[in-house]
Amino acid sequence: MPGKGDLVQGTLEMLILKTLALQPMHGFGISVRIEQMSNGIFHVIPGSLFPALNRLEREGRIKGEWRPTENNRRGRYYILTDLGRKALKEEMRAWGRQVEAVAKILEA
């Protein structure tokens, strides 16, 4: 069972896509944003974040780009592609259905 801080298998990629849906971000930004949005429950370490980013990029759902950061250094920013936007919608719908189903079972 997933305890505090553990992500359900496969949801990390969905969360990354959701995070990037607001604006392009670099790796650290993504990790901080996920932690903030989950009120500190999810903590994404680089060992999981970067493989996930690489996978998404290979699948064409996000695109990496070097841009100057706030403090004028070079950072790699990830942008959601059209394909990624579609995939996010798809996954959110599927997730919603799953949660609903699980909730029904638990309430019964």
């Binding site: 670099h26 650290f28 970067f50 950061t69 250094r73 790699r76």
Partner: peptide
Amino acid sequence: ELRAYLQV
């Protein structure tokens, strides 16, 4: 990228 991450 990883070094930048560490730095930030």
